[in-house]
Amino acid sequence: MKKYLLPTLFILCSFFKVQSQTKTIDTLVDVGNHKIHFKIVPGKGTPVLFDAGGGNDGSVWNSILDPISKITNAPLITYDRAGFGTSTIDTLQTDESKHGIISSIEDLEIGLKKLGYDKDIVLVSHSYGGYLSKLYASRHPKLVKGVVLIDVNHNYYEDGYIEKVLATQDKLIPQWKKNNKGTYYMSATIQETVRIMSKVKIPQHIPVIDFVNGIPFLKTTEEIERWKECHRNYVANNSNVTGITAHDCGHGIWVGNPSLVITSISKIYAGSSKQKAEIQEHALEYALTANNQEKADVLAFNNSEDDLNTWGYELLRKNENHKAAEVFKLNITLNPQSSNAYDSYGEALLKTDQKQEAIKMYKKAIELNPESANAKEVLERISKDSAKQLH
Rank of each mutant, 00 (worst) to 15 (best):
N319T: 15
G214P: 09
E377K: 15
K181F: 00
Q191N: 09
E163M: 10
K267R: 10
L115Q: 08
G129M: 02
N257K: 12
V200H: 03
H322Y: 04
H231W: 02
S239R: 04
T86F: 04
E278R: 09
T183N: 12
I268T: 07
R81E: 05
R195M: 01
L135N: 04
A358P: 03
Q204L: 13
S69H: 12
S372W: 05
K3S: 15
F10C: 07
T352P: 07
Q354G: 02
T22C: 11
A348T: 08
W254I: 03
T310P: 00
G54R: 05
S273I: 05
I268M: 07
Y128S: 06
N62K: 14
C13A: 15
I215Q: 11
P141W: 01
L132P: 00
V122M: 05
Q19E: 11
I279M: 03
Q19R: 11
T8K: 12
Y342F: 14
A387D: 11
N319C: 06
L132C: 00
V122G: 02
G250V: 03
V18L: 10
T245W: 00
H140I: 06
N292D: 13
S187Y: 06
E285S: 14
S87E: 03
Y185E: 06
N180H: 11
D210M: 13
I64M: 12
D306M: 01
S264N: 14
D80E: 02
A387F: 10
D307G: 12
G214Y: 10
K318C: 07
Y156K: 15
I40H: 00
K44T: 07
D118K: 02
D343N: 11
Q204M: 13
S59E: 10
V29G: 04
N374M: 08
S87N: 06
